[in-house]
Design a protein around this nucleic acid. Sequence first.
DNA 1: TGGATTTATGAAAACGTTTTCATAAATTCG
DNA 2: CGAATTTATGAAAACGTTTTCATAAATCCA
Lengths: 353, 353
Amino acid sequence: MKENQQHHTILDLAAALKLSPATVSRALNNTSYVKKETKQRVMEMALKLGYRKNTMAAGLRNSKTNTIGLILPKISMFFHAEVVTVVQNLLHAQGYNLLIGQSNDDPAMEKELSETFFSSRVDAMIVSCTLQTIDFSHFDIFADHQVPILFYDRVPPGNYKARVIKGDDFQGGFIAGQHLAEAGCRNIGMINGPMTSNIYEARAAGFMGSLQYFNLPVRKTLFYHQELSTEQTIAALKKMFAAKNKPDGLFVTSDRNAVTVVQYAKENGIRIPEDLRIVGYSNDPVTAVISPSITTIDQFPSLFGSKLVETLLEMMDTIQTDEYIPAVVTPVKLVERESTSILKPIINPIKLK
Amino acid sequence: MKENQQHHTILDLAAALKLSPATVSRALNNTSYVKKETKQRVMEMALKLGYRKNTMAAGLRNSKTNTIGLILPKISMFFHAEVVTVVQNLLHAQGYNLLIGQSNDDPAMEKELSETFFSSRVDAMIVSCTLQTIDFSHFDIFADHQVPILFYDRVPPGNYKARVIKGDDFQGGFIAGQHLAEAGCRNIGMINGPMTSNIYEARAAGFMGSLQYFNLPVRKTLFYHQELSTEQTIAALKKMFAAKNKPDGLFVTSDRNAVTVVQYAKENGIRIPEDLRIVGYSNDPVTAVISPSITTIDQFPSLFGSKLVETLLEMMDTIQTDEYIPAVVTPVKLVERESTSILKPIINPIKLK
DNA sequence: TGGATTTATGAAAACGTTTTCATAAATTCG
DNA sequence: CGAATTTATGAAAACGTTTTCATAAATCCA
């Protein structure tokens, strides 16, 4: 049974069948004319010898690798893990391999991975940027060489010409604000990621817009735009709750940190939702499980994934033009849970349209 | 700035510098003798023209792709996401790319991915099997062609000759049993995955061994070995709590399902830990966050990842021999949380060694 | 100084596939 | 029936590297 030898090549098949390599190749790939019987013989021999196409040789000849590169900040983040899962499954169904690289939120690493993947001659790229990426020029090589590149979630700003799929972060921010407003919060704050990233910028814009729309004040002392680490989050909470104007509603733009807020509240006798209402972002399963469970914004990661693959495949069999193609925006949805449930009567109901 | 053209090749460099492609290659790769000044000129021109090595051509020539294939059941599972994160980072540091495929716990898909990765001429393979894989012959191609293959976590049985890194599942099971015993449980049960997989088989063996060691009964009606879905878990719980001999301690060999148990208990007025103590498996962050938090077995996924890479690199620069190399076993550790805290006095203390 | 060694470069083959260009055989059909 | 078309196959080149085999120049050292 064991072959335990070198790899068999198309020449081995050709020799064994007294055919030319050209015919064998045609039989294997169903291209051009090959006699039915010949094809049959080739297939059988291929099976018998355990022939497997050398994709490198084929790739070199065709300048096509059937490989897609994917760069993301960290694969273990819930949202990204879900997206990758779907993307990999769909691409596999189309005969593509997926090469994955993690930037660990380090722009230098991101650049390095770009170079490597370009060298590997990936057929296309999918990228979710670092939070700190402000110079996107290391992605230029791809567009310059007609390699389709598609950004998602954390994407370059509008002045960088690129195809983009992003969540409706503005809307996500807006409905978070609306929900807190409707729940009766009046001292509303925000713990947000760094404004260098489009997602946090948009969420903040939507959120503040919402507060203004509902005639609620945007108090500077309750707004933090910073690294989303546990330490920073706790530091922000300490400051907020040390001041006299304590928040009664918080929009925390990452679920992991919303969890931190819940834990901090428990430890400090702050009741949720009575004293403090919380809205997170991403619908990480942990928000459903923690007690109290956390209201959050679902980003539909698997929809994200399927849109990505759909768009990428379309890009790959279209000639890349210079024309501007607007970003695809995927929907968001508020998932209501205990952290914002309306337990107390609203004293001062807001007029909602 | 924009090149916007074809890819530059080594021949372009050679022509531009009036050198032979051979010299350019040598300069680029630091192989053999090249005048210092020449190397300098090559490097500069490479930079100027934006030359990037075509790894397919190089791979074809060297039969080395610098790519490692990784097959796992599902990337979004906590343990695997952590392992992948570490593996990808370490491999990248060594100049390797990582090709990822998800079997979705489907043996047919696993087989398909094996074929694809083999065709892609990966330099080595890392695999965590499907729970249902009983025939491992689709992995034979790799060993037969001297491609190092390393299994982890869900691995083939001992009669399949392969390098293996696995967690100490027996020990994990044992300390879970010991912990429940020491906490005073007397009616101890288990919700386990299918016994087709080595990990669940070993956890069960360790667990049952532990109960016997502590002179506790192993009641068949409290042991379930089945698919680890929410539905199945709830079904098992219903049966257990409908019977007269209700469990006061449960070892649930997956954290996700331990969470299900906690939720079921809450909904059905079963107090944790007073009425029911629970030990999970994997130290998924969710176990720390849920209330009550869940005692669980940590598998040290990042240690797993680094052992994997270390072993794989060693395998890659050693000629593969037929000699048997025993499995590397990584440690486990019990993480004690609220779901097993000792609130009630132990009536009937066990004699522990 | 002159033979041996080291350093530096080039020509050409090779990796395994696909495809273009030919050409021959079989089939169509006016 | 014979010309046109379709079907079937092969020879050879090409994809972009790396490496072996040469050979020439520079350096060593006795």
